[in-house]
């Protein structure tokens, strides 16, 4: 099989972000929070300070590394919550149909009608800032696409011979949904999930930028951008590096999603063989 550029580049960028987050304590030059030193305030990038320093003299390079932890945790965990909710609702709605399908459809339409970031903002307003609130807010507000997709797949898979065969063999509904339907719709769900992770990273940045994310002084890319906005002309590196980190991570996830779609989509697969 030919390796596709989007899959390789996307996968590499995402892997890089994960490695950076995991190895932050070893890769970082200084402690991202404690090592403030006003003597080094607002140093531009140099051999000593790779990405420069902020107004309190903290090393931006180290803070960007640690920031990956927040961004990726939020991206991965909140998207997992979304995927589980979306699959559970959509799959059961498509499989059972009837009133349950109507309920799920109404709920999905409601979610689609409200911009998810606004909805997340509302939840954050109730829960207050912090990592847990972020995970909950973003995890509960972006499942509608997954749900739609799972429902449509369940509807079309329901009439497949192997689903009917399973019924004939005495499988119960839950067993049919888990063994016959879910594995056969997993490809597109993973694609949507990967793209959703990208948008969760962006949403985290946006919410943190608005001061609703992880509490300072612990770094997240969004909160770093937020703190940097007053010095954007005087010390642009404060914005450039966290911005670049967000950009590359989201780009990586989108490329990865596209690449996965290319190999998982049966139509494009048959076109190549």
């Amino acid at each position: 099989m030919k390796l596709r550029a989007n899959l390789v580049i996307g996968g590499a960028l995402f892997a890089l972000a994960i490695v950076v987050g995991l190895l932050a304590p070893w890769l970082a030059h200084t402690d991202p929070v404690m090592d403030a030193n006003l003597m080094n305030a607002e140093e531009p990038p140099s051999w000593t300070w790779w990405f420069g320093t902020d107004a309190q003299g903290r090393d931006i390079y180290s803070r960007v590394l640690y920031g990956a932890r927040v961004s990726l945790t939020v991206g991965i965990v909140s998207q997992l919550i979304n995927s589980v909710i979306g699959v559970a609702l959509g799959l059961s709605a498509g499989y059972f149909g009837g009133w349950w399908d109507d309920v799920v459809n109404a709920l999905t339409n409601l979610m689609l009608a409200i911009p998810s970031l606004i909805f997340a903002l509302a939840i954050m307003a109730v829960l207050g800032p912090g990592l847990t609130s972020l995970l909950i807010a973003l995890g509960l507000t972006n499942w509608s696409f997954t749900c739609r997709l799972a429902r449509a797949s369940a509807l079309s898979l329901r009439s497949q011979g192997y689903v009917q065969a399973a019924t004939v063999l005495g499988y119960g509904d839950v067993r049919i949904m888990i063994t016959q339907l879910l594995p056969n719709m997993l490809g597109p769900i993973v694609v949507i999930g990967t793209l959703g992770m990208g948008s969760a990273v962006l949403s985290e940045a946006a919410l943190s930028f608005l001061g609703l994310g992880v509490r300072p002084p612990f770094p997240s890319w969004g909160s770093m951008l937020s703190e940097a906005r007053e010095q954007i002309t005087t010390a642009p590196w404060l914005s450039i590096f966290p911005g670049l980190a967000i950009f590359l991570t989201v780009l990586g996830l989108n490329l990865l999603g596209d690449g996965l779609r290319d190999i998982l989509d049966p139509q494009s697969r048959s076109r190549r063989t």
């Binding site: 011979g161 192997y162 065969a165 004939v168 063999l169 063994t179 594995p183 056969n184």
Partner: peptide, 13 residues
Amino acid sequence: MIFQEPMTALNPV
């Protein structure tokens, strides 16, 4: 019970 379509009666994945 077994039926007609051996091609589609098994779960492909």
